[in-house]
């Protein structure tokens, strides 16, 4: 770990200034410290955002929910507004990491968690994301954790966070403050970028940008929603695959609103439009759900170690919709 300076910042403008001068931000520190310990990142300075007063969950006038970027995962998971109106997010958070990590980690930091790709975190191996141009070791390597969707020949790293998958199903947006002070809203679905030939660029965030909040629109809070996470052990593991579903039926029991997203299998939280289309306007029954879920892995490119993720993804999506629809 290279020496760095540490500085707490009191306001977003001050934080942006430090960032433009080369600082990286630290919030809960739970990913940053891992990256520092493994020498994956070498910041000159860490600017501590905890003084910005960005924690807390509130309801806006129109019924939308606003989640402060510095809210801890556990606080959000426990929050009645989230549990009652956005179960998928509360479930995704409750299934993230461990209680200790959840007490530390922030929502904003979770959106920016770096990949768990084994090569990214072992600095002795080539990795385009860590060291652009050095090559991707995962393509022909140990890639059971890697992505089958959204990859490129330069990178197939999974974005490993649970929360953003739920947020895509909730049609949520991220509020970002730019270095100049201007605020902008970015849909979570468009927040992460595909690796393409620049896997080191992971999100739409620019130098000096700060995440202020996440907003879940009112219409999504009227959906029922659910998160299913598949992992190698019963708890405390990143997802091999996950599915987030938000659903609203009309008076006739037909699907009026549906968003489905997948995690653990893609380079960014993956919206499954085709699955949604197969079900919109229909009543849910087991066969229809199963057949719709087959579309989940459309376009998947598999490798030696991750081919299982294609059927797993279909099955996880099927399970999530069936459970939400009371058909499991």
């Amino acid at each position: 770990m290279q020496p760095f300076t540490y500085v707490p910042v009191a306001d977003a403008a001050g934080a942006a200034a430090r960032a433009l001068a080369g600082a990286q931000f630290i919030a809960g520190g739970t990913d940053m410290l891992q990256l520092l310990q493994e020498n994956v990142v070498q910041p000159q300075e860490l600017a501590d955002l905890n003084g910005l007063g960005l924690a807390g969950i509130t309801e806006e006038g129109d019924g939308a929910l606003r989640l402060g970027a510095l809210t801890r995962l556990q606080e959000a998971a426990d929050h009645p507004l989230l549990r009652e109106r956005c179960a998928v997010a509360a479930e995704a958070l409750a299934a993230s990491a461990s209680p200790m990590v959840r007490h530390m980690a922030t929502l904003g930091g979770n959106l920016l968690q770096r990949t768990r790709c084994l090569y990214f975190r072992d600095v002795s191996t080539p990795c385009n994301k860590r060291q652009p141009g050095s090559g991707c070791s995962a393509l022909e390597g140990e890639n059971r954790h890697n992505a089958i969707l959204g990859g490129s020949e330069h990178c197939i790293a999974v974005q490993p966070s649970d929360l953003p998958v739920a947020l895509v199903a909730l049609d949520a947006e991220v509020l970002i403050q730019g270095a100049g002070g201007a605020e902008r809203w970015v849909p979570v679905e468009g927040f992460h970028r595909l690796p393409g030939d620049t896997p080191e660029i992971e999100t739409v965030m620019q130098d000096g940008d700060i995440i202020l909040a996440i907003r879940i629109p009112a219409h999504a809070t009227r959906c029922r929603s659910h998160y299913v996470k598949v992992r190698d052990r019963a708890s405390f593991a990143w997802a091999l695959c996950s599915a987030a579903v938000a659903l609203r039926l009309d008076g006739e029991g037909r699907v009026a609103e549906l968003r489905v997203a997948a995690g653990g299998v893609a380079t960014k939280p993956w919206r499954l439009i085709r699955v949604e289309q197969e079900l919109l306007g229909h009543r849910l029954d087991r066969d229809r759900v199963r057949l719709a879920a087959v579309w989940a892995s459309e376009g998947a490119v598999t490798r030696s170690g991750n081919a299982y993720k294609a059927p797993l993804l279909q099955h996880t999506v099927e399970r999530a919709i069936l459970e939400l629809g009371g058909l499991a």
Partner: peptide
């Protein structure tokens, strides 16, 4: 990983 002779 046999290329590196290493546990990843």
């Amino acid at each position: 990983d046999a290329r590196f002779g290493k546990v990843m």
